[in-house]
Design a protein around this nucleic acid. Structure first.
Lengths: 357, 357
DNA sequence: CCAGCTTACGCAATCGATTGCACACACCTA
DNA sequence: TAGGTGTGTGCAATCGATTGCGTAAGCTGG
């Protein structure tokens, strides 16, 4: 069925030169030591015969597969596809293909997938699924170049490309404060993931600067970045602390969950409670009341990570930045209202009931 | 840096047997002809030494890479990630990894990507990005197994796994008709893609059965499955035909675009115009008024395609179904209202203005 | 006119695993 | 005991491209 692929040997036979000469003629660098006439003749017949190099054979010999592994927690989480496209935009022009795998944040799966990638001889790995402490990836990183993206391994030397999580949270706290919010609750991300912790820490610091001595009371921590956890934490916070007028959520999915919890409680956003998200995933603008969120440069994060990996794979000793932080910006929408507007609308019985409960 | 990988030769040296014996001892099938004692000894030392077979070498010899190519138009289009996960769920347990590429529906890019996949020696291709007529994929399919997913190439023998597009559209027309809608407009998908044409054809037939002699007047065709085109076509239809009370859109993105166009015209959905989508992409339920849409089994479509490809790769002569059609169902939400409800609310001046404009 | 240096290319090993064939040895039968 | 039948391993070619080294031809200079 498969039409037999032409090999160097075939071209060698057709042109009458040795196979090694053919190889050199077809390699841009080596071409120099050959006569122009021979090179031309070889390249022409190669084209005529429709020669396509067999990368496997090449890889076996050179120990470079021109393939990178891309590890994602779950591609159905819409924050990741643009990141993947960003990587692709840098990898493909450089001649690299990528093997993509989804870890589902499952340690067993991760271990297996590392094996899969290693067996296939990937030249490097871009990992968007690392944990805050992650011995597995540190071990791999001793053998092959690794870059983490969107997250980082704490205290590790693995280069990371992330967004300005702390800056984003700080800006949000400022933004809410300027609108009169003092009791701001935080639905924190998992404490096993750097983004969760970095954003929470930034929240705590920002709140302390604003005179809140014990911000921990205003925090509820999600075990996963999923809507259900956002709802659970929102309920938790509102049960524990009736004075809260705003919820700063560690990402959009948690915020969407919080929105659901609010409406189930008969509360409106932003009239009763203001809410903010993080990431600005696609379609978010269409979900009422329009989540005010932090816009991260998903595509650029992916692209930058790929560029750094390319540099590492090209020259292993070249210095690359340990951490690259990309800027963020606040995308204002309808989910935040000034504090007094909220107070005016808020019905007193509701507050009493909350305190009693 | 990279700790040297153990090879068969290393194990051969350690155990004192020939490398070929080691190879056989480690291959489940071949093991039979060896003495149990030798097999046991070899497998044990192999484990001790941490042997990992070099797939490249193996692939070079066996001409099987245990890798498949996955072609997607654009992974940021949220209909595709679940499909990809479905494929993965079948491929990974079977020992296959996948190289994913995005075509952006660009012919040049596609051609290049086919080359990329072929050079890398993929054992098969799952293509979710084919066109209705697609000579490129037909050519490839002569050489290696190909399955198309979500779309199909018209009149081709390439196995396809799709959803019941026609059935879904027919059900929607019924659904709208039952609610009193007679003048149903259709925003059709691109006529270069099977889904676009199949859905449009189903619409035309369903309308004819309902006594509409020339349904073409009720159709506006999008050039791409994007929101802007949905908006443009919605405007087009409403301008051309003031009597329309419902818009059946070929997919969710077109429907979302149509929603936007409506509100820009000062029309409400569903009060003025009912709208339906197709695919039921994530988050769609959160976008008001909640798009009534066709639920397709994205994950299963992907999984089934992968299973068929596995069968083709395993036994090239085995018969596989030419077309596998997976069932769909209607997901009712708020974007469809009964016709008379619309009539009652609709303001007469608006209709006049439309006719005049 | 020949040593010595380039230039241009051929030779053969190599990457690591697979596999058809050969072969040695044990056992069995006539 | 010779011949036959297995069994369990070893040998070596092979997949296709890469690359260090060798070498013949051509050229330069003293």
């Amino acid at each position: 069925m498969a039409k037999k692929n032409v090999t160097l040997k075939d071209i060698s036979r057709a042109t009458g030169v040795h196979v090694s000469t053919v190889s050199r003629a077809l390699t841009p660098n080596e071409r120099s030591s050959l006569s122009d006439e021979v090179v031309k003749r070889i390249r022409e017949t190669a084209k005529e015969m429709g020669y396509r190099p067999n990368r496997l054979a090449s890889s076996l010999r050179t120990r470079k597969t021109m393939t990178v592994g891309v590890m994602i927690p779950d591609i159905t989480n819409s924050v990741f596809p643009p990141i993947v496209r960003g990587m692709e935009s840098a990898l493909e022009p450089a001649g690299y293909a990528s093997i993509q795998v989804n870890t589902d944040s499952d340690a067993d799966r991760e271990a297996r997938l590392y094996d899969v990638l290693r067996e296939r001889g990937v030249d490097g790995i871009i990992n968007a699924a690392v944990h805050r402490t992650d011995p597995a990836v540190e071990r791999i990183a001793e053998d092959i170049p690794v870059v983490t993206v969107n997250r980082k391994v704490e205290g590790s030397t693995i280069p990371a490309v992330i967004s300005d999580d702390a800056g984003g949270v700080t800006s949000l706290v400022d933004y809410l404060s300027e609108r009169g919010h003092k009791h701001i609750g935080h639905i924190a991300g998992p404490d096993t993931i750097s983004t969760g912790v970095v954003r929470r820490t930034a929240f705590e610091e920002a709140m302390r600067r604003r005179g809140i001595s014990n911000p921990a009371e205003l925090i509820s921590t999600a075990t996963y970045f999923v809507e259900e956890e956002g709802a659970r934490c929102a309920d938790d916070l509102l049960d524990r602390n009736g004075g809260i007028t705003a919820l700063l959520c560690a990402n959009d999915r948690l915020a969407i969950g919080a929105l659901g919890a609010l409406s189930r409680r008969g509360l409106a956003c932003p009239e009763d409670i203001s809410i903010t998200g993080f990431n600005n995933v696609p379609f978010l603008d269409l979900i009422p009341p329009g989540l005010t969120t932090v816009q991260i440069l998903q595509f650029d994060v992916g692209r930058t990570a790929a560029e750094i990996l390319l540099k590492m794979m090209g020259a292993p000793d070249t210095g690359v930045p340990a951490t690259t932080i990309l800027p963020v910006s606040i995308d204002e929408r309808g989910s935040v209202a000034p504090r007094h507007a909220q107070d005016r609308r808020r019905k007193r019985p509701l507050r009493v009931a909350r305190r009693a409960g």
